[in-house]
Amino acid sequence: MKPIAKISIALSLGITLLSFGCEQEQKTEAQTFKTPNSSNKRSIKDAKAEVQLDKIQLPENFNIEVWAADIPNAREMALTEEGVLFVGSRQEGNVYAVIDEDGDGKADTKFVLAEGLRMPNGVAFKDGDLYVAEVSRILRFNDILNNLGNPKYEVVYDDYPTESHHGWKFIAFGPDDLLYIPVGAPCNICKSEDEIFASITRLDVTDPNASPEIVAHGVRNSVGFDWDPNSGDLWFTDNGRDMMGDDIPNCELNHVSEAGQHFGYPYWHEGTVKDPEFGDQGGPASDYIAPAAKMGPHVAPLGINFYEGEMFPADYQNRAFIAKHGSWNRSKKSGYVVTSIEINGGNASNEKDFISGWLDEASQEAWGRPVDFELMKDGSMLISDDMAGVIYRVSYAASN
């Protein structure tokens, strides 16, 4: 096994201080980005959001507002230094660029960069280029900030599996400059002959002859991961299997300390629950990496983000935020919240609800579902919601 690349603590802290040193109320040139008119440019300044923010519950002195509306099926996000937010979608098949052009603290412009793609859930930005993950392909929009009005893409890699079941992808560049790309299991529960299924891979997008390297095996369906800024280790969420009842198994938060580790699927779930169909085909539970934390049954944890800003109170510095998208087939719904969890080395503990209120417990009706996070320069947090089709901004202001 090859160790996952580590991030220099000093470098990470330096970047953090440089990137998030702005006061909340300040506006800088990096927070506005002017663009010319084009046929794919839309004004969203007056877009209406069908949300119920009065039902949202947050810790004291935190505030949530709609930063951008009319972003249908908003899923993974990628934010540039210039303040341009790229947003993928799963059901819509579109990729967007969302911008606050007038610097008033809310987005007013949307570019439709692509339409009709196959589940372009994943987006990542590096060295001026936008990367988009379809089910079987990785696309690159070169020099995208200078081509928002005339976006064109090339295919970087087109040999991922074509199966649509768990085929949508979350992508991100790691500290090793490789693009990390999960490949979900093509089923609820099965054992695939091709080991690329139920994995997290990484790809060198600069190599025209590159092929994916598997970083983690036994991963049923990860739609979110991030790297600990202190250790450089990879942490990922994983959605547990269905059809074992309301309360089994738990979804998982996992920690990768070495490339090539196996996290149990399809043999074991939540570390200790043997699969009734495939459990006897694998080794004992001790052969696999147990989850660092159990997330709850069927909560569908998606995005995870280590907080590295300076706006939130200091005790959030060692915590990661997790978007629990919400259950789809549980008799009493679970999830539909954002939580935070403390990370120390390889340990995760003290999980707490951070945002709730998207689900009405009495009626069991939900009006929103959180997906992914990005941190703005001032340390505030953007959260995508694919059900409401909006991007929220969460900020903190200490009381006087």
Rank of each mutant, 00 (worst) to 15 (best):
Ala185Glu: 05
Glu310Lys: 12
Glu195His: 10
Leu148Phe: 09
Glu50Val: 15
Glu308Phe: 09
Ala348Tyr: 04
Ile196Val: 14
Met77Ala: 01
Asn318Gln: 13
Ile56Arg: 01
Ser331Met: 12
Ala114Trp: 05
Val183Thr: 11
Gly224Ile: 00
Gln281Pro: 05
Asp70Gln: 10
Gly296Asp: 09
Lys333Ser: 12
Gly279Ser: 08
Asn254Val: 04
Thr16Val: 11
Cys190Arg: 00
Phe20Ala: 05
Asp228Lys: 04
Ala107Glu: 06
Glu60Thr: 13
Leu179Lys: 04
Ala398Trp: 10
Ser231Pro: 02
Lys294Leu: 14
Ala290Trp: 10
Tyr180Leu: 08
Pro284Val: 08
Glu193Ile: 11
Thr80Val: 04
Gly389Met: 03
Thr237Ser: 11
Ala97Pro: 04
Leu17Met: 14
Ser340Glu: 12
Thr80Leu: 07
Gly368Pro: 03
Lys324Ser: 10
Asp46Leu: 13
Pro72Glu: 07
Met311His: 07
Ile99Cys: 00
Lys332Asp: 13
Val95Met: 05
Ala216Thr: 09
Asp233Val: 00
Pro36Leu: 09
Cys251His: 05
Tyr316Thr: 06
Ser136Tyr: 09
Phe263Glu: 03
Asp70Ala: 10
Lys152Gly: 15
Pro36Arg: 08
Val273Ser: 03
Phe62Gln: 06
Asp247Val: 09
Ala68Glu: 05
Val390Gln: 06
Ala47Met: 09
Ala97His: 00
His269Thr: 00
Lys152Phe: 13
Leu253Pro: 01
His217Phe: 13
Ser12Lys: 02
Val98Arg: 02
Ser399Thr: 14
Tyr265Pro: 01
Gln26His: 15
